[in-house]
Computed example of a mutant assay.
Amino acid sequence: MSNKILILEDEKSIRSFMKIKLRALKYDVIEAENGNEALKKVDGSVDIALLDVMLPDIDGFEVCRRLREGYPNIGIIMITAKGQDDDKVVGLGSGADDYLVKPFSPKELVARIEALLRRINRTINKQTADTNLIKNGPFTLDMNKKVLRKEDVEISITPTEYEIIKLLINNANKTVSRDEILDRVWGKNYFGDIKTVDVNIRRIRRKIEEDASNPIYLKTVWGHGYMWSIDK
């Protein structure tokens, strides 16, 4: 079965370019020209959503938030305008896994999609092949169900957040550099900015820490990277 991809883009020429390229690679493509249309068309069979930020009705950030709430395992890539760094940060903070900056090449489009699908598929394969539980302090990471619990309370996490947490919790009390996180989670050929790591870390902290501005579990090691810190 081919992977299903949603293209949400109000500019017909860009939408057509993306659709032609992806269908040529045998992806199952559905398209929408505004946010409300996209939300009506998405269901649990969609693997990846490509979301433009600037739309005629609700913006891409709001679409991203609603999709993440309804479909926590969907892969989301935001499409931002060149030079709009704030859009990248807001998009990632809204629950996106990655972003593309216009104008982008067909090669970059396909590379981002394939990298995200590998992360999603890697997580799904773990669900069926690995029944281990990783227990660390108040946290339990269920490798079978791709679920993180804190004191038996389930915390909703995205596939990308799952991969980051798994990497850090498997290296508890050791510093993992931002470059290593980027290579291990996004892949060595990732085109994007290393700030993507920082935004995802902030997003995870909001979910697991009592006070995200003063973390006690997911700590920054200044000048080096991040550490999953649990007292032994």
Rank of each mutant, 00 (worst) to 15 (best):
residue 33 E to G: 07
residue 181 I to K: 00
residue 145 K to A: 15
residue 98 D to S: 06
residue 50 L to D: 01
residue 72 P to K: 06
residue 105 S to I: 05
residue 91 G to H: 11
residue 74 I to W: 06
residue 124 I to V: 15
residue 205 R to F: 12
residue 131 T to D: 11
residue 55 L to G: 01
residue 185 V to C: 01
residue 179 D to K: 14
residue 181 I to Y: 00
residue 187 G to P: 00
residue 222 W to E: 12
residue 35 G to M: 06
residue 52 D to E: 02
residue 129 A to K: 09
residue 209 E to C: 15
residue 144 N to I: 04
residue 74 I to P: 07
residue 109 L to W: 11
residue 76 I to A: 07
residue 175 T to K: 13
residue 138 P to F: 07
residue 121 N to S: 12
residue 89 V to D: 03
residue 70 G to L: 07
residue 30 I to V: 11
residue 160 T to W: 02
residue 85 D to F: 12
residue 142 D to V: 00
residue 202 R to V: 04
residue 172 A to E: 14
residue 165 I to H: 05
residue 65 R to S: 06
residue 169 I to M: 15
residue 210 E to Q: 11
residue 91 G to K: 02
residue 228 W to V: 13
residue 62 E to S: 10
residue 219 K to P: 03
residue 192 G to C: 09
residue 228 W to M: 12
residue 156 S to V: 15
residue 145 K to M: 12
residue 147 V to E: 15
residue 205 R to Q: 13
residue 107 K to G: 05
residue 167 L to D: 00
residue 202 R to D: 09
residue 232 K to M: 11
residue 152 D to P: 10
residue 85 D to A: 09
residue 128 T to G: 13
residue 38 A to P: 04
residue 190 Y to D: 02
residue 115 A to V: 05
residue 11 E to Y: 11
residue 104 F to S: 07
residue 66 R to G: 03
residue 215 P to I: 03
residue 190 Y to T: 02
residue 187 G to F: 01
residue 181 I to N: 00
residue 121 N to G: 08
residue 158 T to F: 06
residue 109 L to A: 05
residue 138 P to G: 03
residue 15 R to C: 11
residue 108 E to C: 06
residue 16 S to M: 13
residue 223 G to K: 11
residue 101 V to F: 08
residue 6 L to V: 03
residue 116 L to E: 08
residue 87 D to P: 01
residue 56 P to T: 01
residue 48 I to F: 04
residue 217 Y to N: 12
residue 220 T to G: 08
residue 116 L to S: 08
residue 124 I to R: 15
residue 157 I to F: 09
residue 120 I to E: 06
residue 63 V to C: 04
residue 142 D to H: 14
residue 9 E to I: 00
residue 155 I to Y: 12
residue 72 P to C: 07
residue 34 N to T: 05
residue 108 E to G: 10
residue 22 L to G: 08
residue 216 I to H: 08
residue 75 G to T: 03
residue 16 S to C: 05
residue 155 I to P: 00
residue 43 D to Q: 07
residue 125 N to G: 11
residue 108 E to F: 02
residue 105 S to M: 15
residue 127 Q to L: 10
residue 111 A to G: 10
residue 216 I to F: 05
residue 68 R to L: 03
residue 70 G to N: 09
residue 166 K to T: 06
residue 150 K to S: 05
residue 101 V to P: 09
residue 48 I to N: 04
residue 205 R to E: 14
residue 17 F to N: 04
